[in-house]
């Protein structure tokens, strides 16, 4: 009778060991998933930083090249579009991610055109404020690249982790899903060139 209690204790302890292992693995995957979400928020922060820079830049350029209306409009509409789209990377489908990227890519291209316009105005090119903004824009583009790279790296670590044995068993039980990567796209990762 007492021996049976011990046998039961053995079975419970063995199950407890298995459960703690599963919980540990699960928590590990959650940590990695959190990393991906934080990395995503870094990407968004940097994109937002770029969006915040635009009004100043446009205002400065306008002071010297007020009749380049078309360019300003393109920038304004691209900015509005990029501001509207926000996505949650944990639920984003590849299509949503692609449309987000496309909107940001459009903004990059519009900014590139804006800076190209500035090339033909020597006074603007010499303006200290403009140079400052241009450098800040470049820095932000660099930060975006780095943040996107970091996002892809953390997503890759997460994806590898949930596909590897034995984590894949735990991941399939608890429904952890693969994260999509940022695809390198034509125009998206083209930072405006600052030419001195």
């Amino acid at each position: 009778m007492k021996k049976n209690v011990l046998y039961l204790l053995f079975v419970i302890s063995a199950l407890g060991a298995i459960c703690s292992w599963v919980v540990g693995r699960c928590n590990g995957i959650v940590t990695l998933e959190e990393n991906v979400e934080t990395a995503w928020s870094q990407v968004e922060t940097q994109y937002q930083r770029r969006i915040d820079l635009i009004p100043n830049l446009v205002a400065t350029v306008k002071g010297y090249a007020s009749h380049e209306k078309e360019t300003f409009e393109t920038v304004a509409s691209a900015r509005a579009k990029a501001t509207q789209i926000t996505i949650d990377p944990s639920k984003a489908t590849p299509e949503q991610l692609a449309s987000y990227q496309a909107a940001q890519g459009e903004l990059s291209q519009a900014l590139g055109r804006l800076l190209a316009v500035a090339e033909s105005y020597p006074e603007l090119k010499a303006n200290e404020n403009f140079l400052q903004l241009q450098s800040q824009l470049e820095g932000t583009e660099n930060r975006i690249t780095y943040a996107r790279d970091l996002f892809n790296r953390t997503a890759q670590i997460y994806n590898t982790s949930i596909r590897r044995f034995p984590n894949n068993i735990v991941a399939s039980i608890f429904g952890f899903e693969r994260k999509n990567y940022f695809q390198s796209e034509q125009g998206v990762d083209h930072a405006p060139q600052a030419d001195f």
Partner: peptide, 16 residues
């Protein structure tokens, strides 16, 4: 990025 910490779970596994 944070590293997953398996220390606690190993302690539980060991205990069980």
């Amino acid at each position: 990025p944070a590293e997953p910490d398996y220390g606690m779970s190993w302690a539980f596994i060991f205990g069980f």
